[in-house]
Design a protein around this nucleic acid. Structure first.
Length: 848
RNA sequence: GGGCGUGUAGCUCAGUUGGUCAGAGCACCCGCCUUACAAGCGGGCGGUCGGAGGUUCGAGUCCUCUCGCGCCCA
């Protein structure tokens, strides 16, 4: 036991010890009932960790530690989400490169010493992926060291990364199974498309942003009748117009339904149709349907079975050839002026042409309206018809949807109301889950296509690998029965060029970490898992997609319980996010306040409740940790480290009273943890501990030093019992300081010790009356108050104290302790019916 | 516009099923070098529980409306 205990260096010391002792190792010999398994969120390693990660991961760790101390073998692996677009972007910026799949592999490529992000060097797909792998390995080392320093009780032997061989094999295997059962399919369909990244985007990745736009009122022509005026924010799509639409009940347009009109400038005959989604309040109440301006266009196109006239290409530019139906020479001439232009330029040119032809009525009216964006993109999404892979998710199938809603209800949610987020998301889906991405650093689809005699892929007859071959890379490996020379040749094959969406892999973390089909023995012991902890923002993505995969593959939930952490808000109560630039990195906080202190702050945030970053709470946590050091040192120095902890030796009313209160704390903290209310467990423990230090410790100080008496032995035994229990109650929250103080007097790790139970000291506690400590402490407080008001030292002597009231009797049981702690010469107790406890304190007359 | 959540002391938050529930910590003020801890200890100041109605013997707690804030979805 050190003379001057300190938190300095405590993290480094115990991180090493824990690593060597393997105290957090998962014991895979245990049966399912003896195991608690956690499906930990794999953080995205391409960014820096921020304090919000520390917040929610600490919540999980307190649960892991609680379960471990309760005798469970805790399966608590960590993963890194390294595949996907964020890593690609980081690699592009870090090395100053970009991926160009048309370039051949250069085995000798070395990235530039001084990368210039503005002049990115094009490199092959293989070279690009190698750089991604190189950088993520480095990033993951940094993450792991921060997690270790934070004290996460992870078993690092089970770490995985979403791009590693096991994850790729798992993702491909699950996909092949989905495909075989008809849950995955390929379709050519209008798809939300990001023109910057040139990839399809799923519903879960969308966000609306308010953008300025303008209503252009333009005229469509009719033979022998007045022209029809429509308003549109996207005049450049005029050549893609396939119909006009108005609400079926709209009186103004009844006569038009079933007739045709002619588009201005381009001269295409289009029908006028009726549909309930047309908004009579918007513009002139009649709108043009284009293929495709927005998702409503897609709905109209599908439900009204309209023709397709796509004009926007994968690069976001107007395609070279006019669409079918745009046949007139004048129309083709006009279209030629748009071919190859960006959407922006095309709009200007169409407006010019409309103005010249007299079909633009008045000037465009500026408005602000919501526009769909890819959450990581900065150009509005277009809708492009492409061939993509989908997994069914209930978005277009009531039976699947109901099954998934039922799973959501089966899941135990903490807090409960988070269930409605799941239900609303599932209920609001309007299409299946698009899982293919036209990117590079991801899990490739394990699919090849045969080429016909003209070299065109036969998409209906995909070639699939055996599960035993996984993981495969169809862009570098040939399918069975073919040789690499036949790649791209007529009669040969091509590999599917796409990779899976990140979520298509991370929706399988229980299977990846649990060893599905790779380690059946392990999988059987940990799956379905007990706990999925995560943030509320990814209920619609990660949680939902994981439920989908497990529902299809295993017919069960992937875990029984979900614990949803809240947001971290900055001190101004704004959500902390990278895009807002208000992110705080954890390492400075850990260094400044200690890991235990930061964990204390994190643990003081309840599940599902947004919590402000509050350094004040970290200071409080630091003080608590230091207090634990000092109080433990004191108690051990008084009681003697070698004194056996013996409930039978606790005989004094005050000591028994304290243990009775402690018994309540243990029961309460245990129940709170079982109900995933870690905050309450911490609060109760902390409250008791400070009261113990302020009152009980002061009261028994003198008696405990008495080595020979039975009363002294009672105090010392009670102190040690309280100390042992408190060290363990605090252990899930403050793993470093509790391990430090535990090591002063106990064998083994506190984190392998058993969670305290009332049984350990019931004999002493049951005989105790909580009111004794309460009454005695109140008398002591009254004495202190009198001294404080007289501006005297707490060591000042007191002539006389008279205690009156109902509880005087209880306080009277502790006369000697009170007299010693308060330095009271004469102490009398007068029992009365007064419910109030009255304490009269007579101080010595102040001297001249 | 719809959904979920939230509004209690200057700040961060507790307040189980309506009945000492008006609390804690921080901050602030006044004291105290007290042999575990001055990165400490003792004491004190501080709120018409967002607002308005209603139910009730009784509402921070239940109901209705309303305002503010946060997030999600249109």
């Amino acid at each position: 036991m050190p003379d001057k205990p300190s938190l300095d260096g405590i993290e480094a010391k115990w991180v090493d010890v824990w690593d060597e002792s393997g105290v957090y190792h998962f014991d895979r010999s245990k049966s399912r009932e003896e195991i608690f398994s956690i499906d930990t969120p794999p953080p995205t390693v391409s960014g820096s960790l921020h304090i919000g990660h520390v917040f929610s991961y600490t919540h999980t760790d307190t649960v892991a530690r609680f379960q471990r101390m309760n005798g469970k073998a805790v399966f608590y692996p960590m993963g890194w989400d390294d595949n996907g677009l964020p890593t690609e972007r980081r690699v592009q910026n870090y090395y100053g490169v970009r991926c160009d799949p048309s370039i051949p592999y250069d085995p000798d490529f070395t990235p530039p010493a001084k990368p210039d992000p503005k002049k990115q060097i094009p490199i092959s797909r293989q070279n690009f992926i190698e750089l991604c792998e190189r950088l993520t390995v480095e990033d993951e080392k940094v993450f792991e060291s921060i997690w270790r320093r934070l004290g996460l009780s992870v078993d690092w032997r089970y770490t995985y990364a979403t791009i590693d061989d096991n994850s790729r094999a798992t993702a491909q295997r699950a996909f092949l199974r989905n495909l075989a059962r008809g849950e995955a399919y390929m379709a050519e369909a209008p798809t939300l498309w990001d023109v910057t990244f040139r990839t399809a985007v799923a519903q879960a990745e969308l966000e609306d942003r308010e953008r300025p736009g303008a209503y252009h009122t333009i005229t469509f022509h009719r033979d022998g009748a007045e022209p029809v005026r429509i308003a549109t924010t996207r005049p450049e799509l005029l050549p893609a117009c396939v119909a006009l639409v108005a609400h079926p009940d709209d009186e103004r347009y009844q006569a038009l339904f079933g007739t045709t009109v002619r588009t201005p400038v381009f001269g295409v005959e289009v029908p006028v149709v009726a549909h309930r989604l047309a908004d009579p309040e918007k513009g002139t109440g009649i709108a043009m349907i284009c293929t495709f301006g927005d998702v409503t266009d897609v709905t109209w196109w599908r439900e009204l079975q309209l023709p397709t006239r796509p004009i926007i290409g994968w690069d976001g530019r107007i395609v070279a050839d006019p669409p079918e139906g745009l046949d007139s020479p004048a129309g083709r001439e006009a279209y030629a002026k748009l071919a190859g232009a960006t959407v922006h330029t095309a709009r200007e040119r169409v407006v010019e042409m409309l103005r010249a032809s007299g079909d633009l009525i008045g000037e465009p009216q500026p408005i602000t309206h919501p526009v769909k964006f890819f959450e990581k993109g900065d150009k509005p999404l277009e809708i492009v018809t492409t061939r993509q892979w989908y997994i069914r998710n209930g978005g277009r199938d009531a039976e699947v949807r109901d099954g998934l809603l039922e799973r959501g209800r089966e899941l135990i949610w903490h807090p409960e109301h988070m269930c409605s987020r799941f239900e609303h998301w599932v209920g609001g889906l309007n299409g299946d889950w698009l899982i293919s991405r036209q990117r590079f650093f991801g899990v490739p689809f394990p699919v090849w296509y045969p080429l016909d005699d003209e070299g065109n892929p036969i998409y209906d007859a995909p070639i699939l690998p055996d599960e035993s071959q996984l993981p495969v890379d169809p862009s570098s490996e040939a399918p069975k029965g073919y040789t690499e020379e036949q790649r791209g040749k007529p009669g040969g094959f091509i590999g599917d060029p796409d990779v899976m969406d990140t979520w298509a892999t991370s929706s399988l973390t229980p299977q990846i970490a649990g060893g599905w089909e790779r380690d059946p023995d392990l999988f059987e012991r940990v799956f379905p898992m007990d706990l999925r902890p995560q943030g509320q923002d990814i209920i619609r993505t990660w949680l939902f997609s994981t439920v989908v995969r497990s529902h299809f593959e295993h017919g069960t939930l992937p875990w029984s319980t979900a614990a949803i952490s809240g947001w971290i808000l900055d001190p101004d109560r704004k959500k902390m996010s990278k895009s807002k630039g208000n992110v705080v990195t954890p390492i400075a906080m850990l260094e400044k306040y200690s890991s235990d202190a930061v964990r204390y702050w994190a643990a003081s945030g309840r599940l599902g409740t947004d919590t402000a970053l509050d350094e004040g709470q970290m200071k409080v946590g630091r003080r608590l940790a230091i207090k634990i050091l000092n109080a433990s040192k004191f108690a051990l120095s008084v009681a003697g480290e070698d004194t056996p902890v013996d409930p039978a030796a606790v005989t004094e009313p005050l000591d028994r009273s304290m243990l009775a209160v402690l018994a309540d704390v243990v029961a309460d903290a245990t129940a709170a943890f079982q109900g995933y209310d870690h905050t309450r467990a911490l609060e109760r423990t902390e409250r008791f501990f400070w009261d113990l230090c302020d009152d009980y410790l002061e009261l028994v100080k003198a008696r405990a030093y008495d080595a020979d008496s039975r009363e002294g032995a009672s105090a010392r035994s009670a102190l040690l019992i309280a100390l042992s229990v408190l060290h363990r109650l605090f252990a899930p929250f403050l793993p470093f300081v509790t391990e430090e103080v535990w090591s002063w007097w106990q064998e083994g790790s506190v984190h392998a010790a058993s969670w305290p139970s009332v049984e350990e000291f019931r004999s002493a506690a049951a005989a105790g009356d909580p009111a004794v400590l309460a009454a005695t402490a109140e008398v002591l407080r009254s004495v202190r108050k009198a001294k404080s008001e007289a501006k005297l030292s707490m060591r000042a002597e007191v002539d006389r104290v008279v205690v009156r009231g109902k509880q005087a009797e209880q306080a009277g049981l502790c006369r000697d302790d009170l007299a010693a702690a308060g330095r009271v010469a004469e102490l009398t107790f007068e029992s009365s019916d007064d419910t109030e406890l009255r304490v009269d304190v007579t101080l010595p007359q102040a001297e001249g």
